[in-house]
Write a protein that binds this DNA or RNA. Structure first.
Lengths: 258, 258
DNA sequence: CAGTAACTTCGTACATTGTACAACGTACTG
DNA sequence: CAGTACGTTGTACAATGTACGAAGTTACTG
């Protein structure tokens, strides 16, 4: 009896899929016409091209060339599909040997790797992963990225926290960038149009006496960054702060170096 | 003709709602039975109690005591409703005078205020705000929080970036906490159940030779933090790093102090 | 004071989503 | 060869946001 419980009903099954562990029972009936990876490749391509919202079971089925319900013989449900997509793109990330470089260089590179991931697959930053899928991609990624903190003198618990801190930063930056981009596209208003349309009410309401700092700083920030530039700037600024913050922790340690 | 365009079709209208600017045209027809704030209060209560997913137009209408479609005379659509909810809770945040305290104290307090906001209204961290709703709550919040960087010597552009950096950190931490919590609830599996159910496959697959660092660090991190404690720890660790990172920037400035 | 226009309220309806269910055919097991 | 487990698919259902139009209510216009 096929087990199509609602999303996440059977974590053991998802784990078997993540690790591509074939069901040990002898297979009867017709063989499957596609592979799990066929499904995942199509899903990732679809998500890359048209966003996570475009990945509906029907659209995916059409891309794969099967009926919608057929997908459920490959994947227990949509939640598991997303987990598998995520693990697949994790598995494909580059992992060059950087063991010679100082820790700052390595951490910058890890951040950049993740930033590139989110640039190629913006949807990845949106997928909720409360209990992250412990697949081979996720694990290889974790293993590799932990190595960025080799020779920093951090104990294991702190090392995990430091990595989480860096990754959460990059992910948040990616989400902000995506939100800004989609807000602009969805509304179909350029920033200029928006401002001229709302200027009358805004000038009336943005009282410099009530909000002196906000008006001044907002104007300065808005002028300095034409909106397109903003996400990049936020990333650069934030990454510098992240490194400085970790630097205080690491370089203060006993016999700190690198 | 009432204008019910699809979400975000008319930003000027949303602005008028945010600032409670009454339509200047003379009102004909029956007066509305509720106020916009009635709607928002009900929506926020609903979201606080049952999550953002529970805020459907039908459920909200029932809570307010009207038919679903009636809501559209108060609000152009669901997207605008969310913007208004967000601005409303921003408006309600505490803003005590902390002008005497050193900047670190002020920034810690700002972070804590936001953390409390997300503790009370977890849904707020999930609402996408590409172009943030420039309402009175948002603006008062921005004005107040920028003041945390008074006397730090930061120029206006940097001050905005620094605040964004702090707020994005808190928001990311809140999202992680929410994701972890909901993953646990949805699956209805305790962590213990999950581990014992998956131990057979995991021990087979978590090869210490392939993933030596990951297995060791993961075990250490898992042991140090029983899962319930994890979000708090990540927040404390991250906030310390955020402050250190800003400290390098601020205390290095010309005539730096406070 | 009558007529009209603007406005609120709401019932119905539609497209879209994930996925449960059952029918049907296929291939392996006994 | 019979039985059974499985792959594939058509149909169907509940839930969502919201478009549309009817019905009723109020204020402005002449």
């Amino acid at each position: 009896m096929p087990d199509h419980r609602t999303g996440g009903g059977d974590p053991a099954h998802t784990l078997r899929l993540l690790w591509r562990q074939p069901d040990d029972a002898p297979r009867r009936g017709p063989r499957q016409g596609r592979s799990l990876d066929d499904i995942l490749t199509a899903a990732i391509t679809l998500a890359d091209a048209e966003g996570l919202a475009a990945v509906t079971m029907r659209a995916l089925a059409q891309a794969v060339g099967v009926a919608p319900m057929t997908l459920y013989t490959y994947v227990p449900g949509k939640a598991e599909l997303l987990d598998l997509m995520l693990d697949a793109i994790y598995a494909g990330m580059p992992r060059p040997d950087r063991s010679g470089a100082p820790w700052r260089t390595r951490v910058v590179a890890v951040a950049a790797d993740n930033r590139n991931l989110f640039a190629t697959h913006p949807w990845a930053a949106e997928v909720a992963t409360g209990r992250p899928p412990l697949g081979p991609g996720q694990l290889a990624k974790y293993e590799y990225e932990l190595r960025a903190f080799d020779d920093t003198g951090l104990d294991d618990v702190t090392r995990d926290a430091a990595l989480t801190y860096v990754l959460d930063f990059v992910r948040a930056a990616a989400r902000s960038a995506t939100e800004a981009r989609s807000a602009q596209q969805e509304s179909a208003w350029t920033d200029e149009q928006w401002w001229t349309a709302n200027a009358p009410l805004l000038t009336q309401v943005l009282d410099e006496r009530r909000f002196p700092t906000a008006v001044r700083v907002g104007a300065a920030a808005g002028a300095a960054q034409n909106a397109a530039y903003h996400p990049d700037h936020a990333y650069e600024f934030g990454l510098a702060r992240v490194l400085d913050g970790l630097g205080v922790l690491i370089d203060a340690g006993p016999g700190a170096n690198d």
